[in-house]
Design a binder for these strands. Structure first.
Lengths: 364, 364
DNA sequence: ATGAAAGCGCTAACAG
DNA sequence: CTGTTAGCGCTTTCAT
């Protein structure tokens, strides 16, 4: 953890000059307005000032007025870092996401969660896991170092060490977007293997014979692929030369191009494919586009199914058949669980499977 | 419709004795391992333990060993909240974004920034502004309450009050993705009006006569639209019944559907449109799709230009002509500026226009 | 309803 | 190289 060198702290008198430091010249540390200043200006004790801000009902009307005025006059902004130290309540919820720069469905869950937490007075600290960049244990440690009051994960940590660390904190932890038999604490998600298997059955029921898959190289994407392939085998739909399901695997986060390339690759290997399961809607959109460019009729010649039911899925040509996950509900539910625990309320179902649903549109 | 499990599965307890804090009942605050404990176990003073962790080069080899062992034995995780209080260095950089759940181009900038800050030992605290949900002044206050060491904004705050607050902190502030004559502090972006004007000229040079626009109802989207419309007027390309440019405005964040609807709406108003400027690539993709569905030849009958050069732009059918912004560079540059200031190094250019470029592909 | 004292866990600023 | 002494700004606790 290389850091810049510590800079000297200049102590300026603070409030004497009302207006701004010429930017760039001299960044004054004049965030010296503390609760003590407010109290002094208001003519009350620090404690009364503190109470006026956090539990106004315990303070006389008059004191309240004077403190409020003092706050306005001084431009006081409470220091939550200091408050948190003593009270052991940081007001922070950590959320660890795989990545942010992508059109992944889980962003909706994060969004919903953020809102729920914000409404409850917590701030969310979002951290990118980066699909394998920094080590999980170090990441978890750096997050815990901020003393969040709870931790929400999109996905499941692989490293047993990191999981142990999480558990060791005794903090409420919610893992989401996945199912596992050994959650760290709470869990709200769905089975990715079941998703894959359902898609295989979906194709089977509609008479498709030659299935193929574009998989995403990321834990949950691989689970979906595995579920799809296994079920296809079971149904006797593994028909490539090696009695397998032709599969093309791409990096995450997924891009449309990978769908185009993937379909092209799969067709060159096995031209008679009639059903394609895509790891994400974005890939499916690429595949749809490639099919169009090659004048392959969808769904007549080729059925395509995506995953995520992203906001564009209903608006492609043809409209995309896809697996819908109630991402918003996952986010809300995760937030509810956390808030319940923080509120000392019992949480009966600590593991929740929210399931999924195949939305049939025109592409399959 | 195949369905997954849609109702909660009861967790059959099972693990009750694996880890002890009976969840929900008695969340023991047993994160009591402090530096003092480590020091005691290692048989050194708190200070030596502290130094062993943050400036190992100041500590003897032996002490280092013993502290490291003590850390491992106790499972100590430093409390950055406490450290930050004394040192006045929270190690936090706040980043305020419009929203997270969208395929906006700025997410790439955020991603790049996060990485740069992480490499420098800072953690990024991402906050959603929510396109007008909570008041800007309150939002800024809640962010400042965490005492970040710098603040990066995607976009520019509207509220003068909020801007004053920001300035008042004396913290390094970088506004990004925009140009303004009165930045709070530093600025790295490009002119959205210039983007709009360039697209209008682009159409003009290629002989288009009947321009139209799908605008996004968000500050920068509106600036682009304004630039486009003004330039179109100047060039004599404002040709609708009212001597204007047919414009359809949609909510942000934008979705593909809005592009489909928008094109449909515009055509019903003015069927002879031959050039369409879209507020985002996502909208452009929708417009492309709608054109395809209506058998309108792109670009022969209708030219379409997007904005953002998102990762899918090169892979649509036809490939999308769009305005490219070097989002990653914006993120990196913003991070560099902040890190320089934090490192007491001079920043010569406090306002940087990174420009943009029209990438001509097949759609126009 | 208010205030005084006592730290939260850590690190800056000195001495040794 | 190591330790001691003071707090950072706030809130808990307990007195009034």
């Amino acid at each position: 953890l290389a850091r810049g060198r510590a800079r000297p702290i200049k102590h300026t008198d603070g409030m004497s000059d009302v207006h701004e430091p010429l930017p760039g010249q001299e960044r004054k540390k004049r965030e010296n307005v503390t609760l003590a200043d407010v109290a002094a200006v208001a003519g009350v004790s620090k404690m009364t000032a503190s109470r006026a801000l956090s539990s106004p009902e315990l303070v006389s009307e008059e004191a309240l007025q004077r403190v409020r005025e003092a706050v306005a006059r001084t431009g006081y902004i409470p220091n939550r870092i200091a408050g948190g130290l003593k009270s052991n309540r940081s007001g922070l919820i950590a959320c660890i996401v795989p990545t942010i720069a992508s059109g992944s469905a889980f962003l909706v869950a994060v969004h919903a969660m953020s809102k729920a937490f914000a409404d409850a007075g917590y701030q969310v600290m979002l951290t990118e896991r980066g699909y394998g960049a920094l080590g999980e244990p170090e990441l978890v440690e750096s997050v815990i170092a901020r003393r969040p009051e709870a931790i929400v994960l999109i996905g499941i940590l692989q490293s047993p060490q990191a999981r142990a660390r999480l558990r060791g904190t005794g903090l409420p932890v919610v893992e989401t977007w996945d199912m596992t038999s050994s959650p760290v604490d709470m869990l709200v998600g769905f089975s990715h293997e079941a998703v894959g298997a359902s898609v295989a059955r979906f194709f089977h029921e509609r008479g498709c014979k030659h299935l193929a898959m574009i998989a995403a190289d990321e834990p949950r994407g691989l689970q979906r692929a595995q579920g799809f392939i296994n079920e296809a085998r079971r149904l006797g739909l593994a028909t490539d030369v090696h009695q397998g399901v032709p599969t093309w695997t791409v990096d995450a986060p997924t891009r449309m191009r990978q769908g185009r390339e993937g379909l092209a690759q799969l067709l060159s290997r096995q031209p008679d494919i009639d059903a394609l399961c895509c790891a994400t809607d974005v890939i499916a959109l690429g595949a749809l586009t490639e099919a169009h460019a090659r004048s392959i009729a969808v769904p007549q010649q080729l059925s395509i199914v995506g995953f995520g039911d992203l906001d564009f899925a209903a608006d492609t040509e043809p409209a995309l058949t896809t697996v819908r996950v109630d991402s918003m509900e996952i986010g809300r539910h995760a937030a509810d669980m956390v808030l319940s625990v923080l509120d000392e309320q019992p949480v009966t179902d600590r593991v929740v499977d929210l399931g999924f649903e195949i939305v049939q549109r025109a592409s399959a």
